[in-house]
């Protein structure tokens, strides 16, 4: 390689390396070291697995951890079930301006901050909110109905927040499916469900996996929605991390929690890829 091209290469790669090292590698190394530290006296620390032991010994931590994982998977599944027909409509049925308009509608919620968006749901769902009022007005409910602060409200918020990230990769993959292939499916005797099962879904797998990974990670790491819409029982693992770091100043345990969350999301994403026979390169390439 000539000196000139090498310099150019270094300059091009520098921002990427800086990004990786400063924002991802260094904090994680620090977090790892922090999580393996135990405070034995004032200003005195020893290397130990005590933080991880605490996690395993305390049922609340373990329970919240598992619950968060299950709920995030559930949120991803619901997003997929709602997002798939929406994406199919945008990619294959809507044409021209309707298509762009629908796509834009998926994007519009992201023009306001997540906080405001979540407040929007609170306005709708709270005891004195719109839906409660409507139910009373048409006579279905006798008194104010509280719909906030439970798992269902939290799920609604999570799905709403993640929808775009499911729709975008799905629309991209579905658009690449030739209409002729769908028509051939019908022509050769297929019915709606069999064409969906044998042709459309197999074609959309890379998009489904890509969207699901993004939505799953966003849901798992979400803090605001579970905090604002979820109730006392709908504790999210990120809330535990927050409270360790900010409320209790127990950075060691918080770091251990953070690491466990990283491991959890990696394991589930890996399992999802194995299950669908996809690779990370392939799915990310398609999205």
């Amino acid at each position: 390689m000539r000196a000139g091209t090498r310099l150019g290469f270094v300059l091009l790669i520098a921002p990427l390396l800086l990004w990786l090292v400063l924002l991802i590698v260094i904090p994680h190394i620090d977090l790892a070291l922090l999580s393996l530290r135990e405070r034995v006296g004032v200003g005195e620390y020893a290397v130990s697995m005590a933080n991880y032991r605490t996690f395993l010994d305390e049922p609340l931590y373990l329970w919240t951890f598992l619950r968060t994982a299950v709920m995030a998977v559930l949120a991803t599944a619901i997003t997929l079930v709602i997002g798939f027909p929406v994406s199919f409509y945008i990619a294959k049925i809507a044409r021209g301006r309707v298509q762009s308009a629908l796509f834009l509608l998926c994007l519009v919620p992201f023009w306001v901050s997540e906080l405001v968006r979540t407040f929007g749901w609170m306005i709708l769902l709270r005891e004195t909110g719109l839906i409660s009022g409507l139910l009373q007005w048409i006579g279905v409910a006798d008194g104010p109905v509280e719909m906030l602060y439970n798992d269902a409200a939290m799920m609604v918020g999570l799905v709403y927040t993640s929808m775009l990230f499911m729709v975008v990769p799905l629309v991209t993959t579905l658009e690449s499916l030739d209409d002729g292939i769908i028509e051939a499916g019908y022509d050769l005797g297929g019915s709606g469900p069999s064409v969906l099962r044998e042709i459309i879904i197999p074609h959309a797998v890379p998009g489904i996996v890509a969207g699901s990974i993004v939505v799953f990670m966003l849901s798992l790491g979400n803090y605001l929605t579970p905090t604002m819409l979820g109730g006392k029982d709908s504790l999210w693992f990120t809330e535990l991390i927050y409270s360790q770091f900010i409320v209790r100043f127990n950075w060691e345990l918080g770091a251990a929690f953070g690491f466990l969350l990283l491991v959890l999301s990696s394991v589930i994403v890996w399992a999802m890829l194995r299950l669908t026979g996809q690779t990370l390169e392939k799915t990310m390439g398609s999205a």
């Binding site: 030739d178 002729g180 292939i181 028509e183 051939a184 499916g185 019908y186 022509d187 050769l188 005797g189 297929g190 019915s191 044998e198 042709i199 197999p202 074609h203």
Partner: peptide, 19 residues
């Protein structure tokens, strides 16, 4: 179309790439 005993060879053949 799926109930007609008529089949079609499409312009771009439309073979199912996933199979």
């Amino acid at each position: 179309p799926n109930k007609r005993n008529v089949n079609m060879v499409f312009q771009h053949l439309a073979l199912f790439p996933m199979m």
